[in-house]
C-alpha cells in the first residue's frame, strides 16, 4: 500500500492492517497514538515521565495483542487506548499511595533553565501541580476534557460512567483548579487588569 494511503487510513483501519500482519501499520499507529498516550499518562501520574513511558509501552502492547480480535465499529481505537492508560495509571497511583501517602506534590524543578524561563512551561508545571492535588477521577475527567480534547460522551465511555457524571466531575475539577491556581495569578503574569 502507498504511504499516502496509510497516512489517510483511520486508526481502526491501521489496526486491522497490523492484525493482518502489516508492520508498517504498527509504525504509523505508534506515531499517532503513543504521544497522546504518553501525554495523558504523564498528567495522570503527576508528571512522572519515566513511569508514564512504562504505562505507554504497556498500553500499546495491549493494543497489539488486541489487534487480531478487534471488533470493528464498536469503539474508537483512541478511546480504547485512553481507557487502558487511565486504568493502568489508576492502578499505579493506588500502589504508590500504599507506599507513601504524601508522595503527590508539585513536579520536579530540575529542568534546564532555558525551558524554565518560558511562561508556558511555568503554567504547564503549575497546572500539573494543581492537577496532582485533585482526586483521581476529577483529574482524569478534566485532563481528558480540557487537555486531550475528548468529548463528554467519549469520556463517559473511557471512564465507564454516565455523561452527567462526567459533567459533574469536570465542573468540580475546574472549580478546584481555579481556586488552587488563584494564588499564582501575579506570579504567572496575568493579574494586572
Amino acid at each position: 500500500m502507498a504511504l499516502d494511503a496509510y497516512e489517510e487510513a483511520s486508526d481502526e483501519a491501521l489496526l486491522v492492517l497490523y492484525g493482518n500482519g502489516d508492520p508498517m501499520a504498527a509504525q504509523l499507529l505508534t506515531h499517532r497514538l503513543a504521544p497522546r498516550a504518553l501525554g495523558f499518562a504523564t498528567r495522570l501520574l503527576g508528571g512522572d515521565r519515566a513511569e508514564a513511558e512504562d504505562v505507554t509501552q504497556e498500553a500499546m502492547l495491549r493494543l497489539w495483542k488486541q489487534a487480531t480480535g478487534w471488533r470493528t465499529g464498536e469503539a474508537q481505537v483512541s478511546t480504547w487506548l485512553y481507557r487502558v492508560v487511565s486504568n493502568l495509571c489508576t492502578d499505579r497511583l493506588r500502589k504508590r499511595r500504599t507506599v507513601n501517602i504524601d508522595a503527590a506534590g508539585d513536579p520536579e524543578d530540575g529542568r534546564p533553565s532555558a525551558v524554565e524561563s518560558m511562561m508556558d512551561e511555568d503554567r504547564a508545571q503549575a497546572l500539573q501541580g494543581a492537577l496532582n492535588r485533585l482526586p483521581d477521577r476529577q483529574r482524569i475527567a478534566v485532563t481528558l476534557r480540557h487537555i486531550e480534547g475528548a468529548t463528554n460522551p467519549e469520556i463517559a465511555e473511557i471512564m465507564d460512567i454516565s455523561v452527567e457524571a462526567v459533567e459533574s466531575l469536570t465542573a468540580r475539577g475546574k472549580r478546584a483548579l481555579a481556586k488552587d491556581l488563584a494564588g499564582r495569578r501575579e506570579e504567572l503574569g496575568y493579574g494586572e487588569d
Binding site: 497490523y18 508492520p23 504498527a26 509504525q27 505508534t30 503513543a34 504521544p35 497522546r36 504518553l38 501525554g39 504523564t42 498528567r43 513511558e53 505507554t56 509501552q57 500499546m60 502492547l61 497489539w64 511562561m119 508556558d120 512551561e121 511555568d122 503554567r123 504547564a124 503549575a126 497546572l127 500539573q128 494543581a130 480540557h146 487537555i147 480534547g149 483548579l177 491556581l181
Partner: peptide, 24 residues
C-alpha cells in the same frame, strides 16, 4: 493553563518508540 499544557512536549523518546515497535 490548559493551552500551555497542550503545547507541552510529550513526544516519546526514541528508546520508547523503538521498544513499542519491537513489541508490535
Amino acid at each position: 493553563f490548559f493551552n500551555a499544557a497542550r503545547k507541552a512536549d510529550v513526544e516519546p523518546s526514541a528508546d520508547v518508540f523503538n521498544a513499542i515497535i519491537a513489541d508490535a
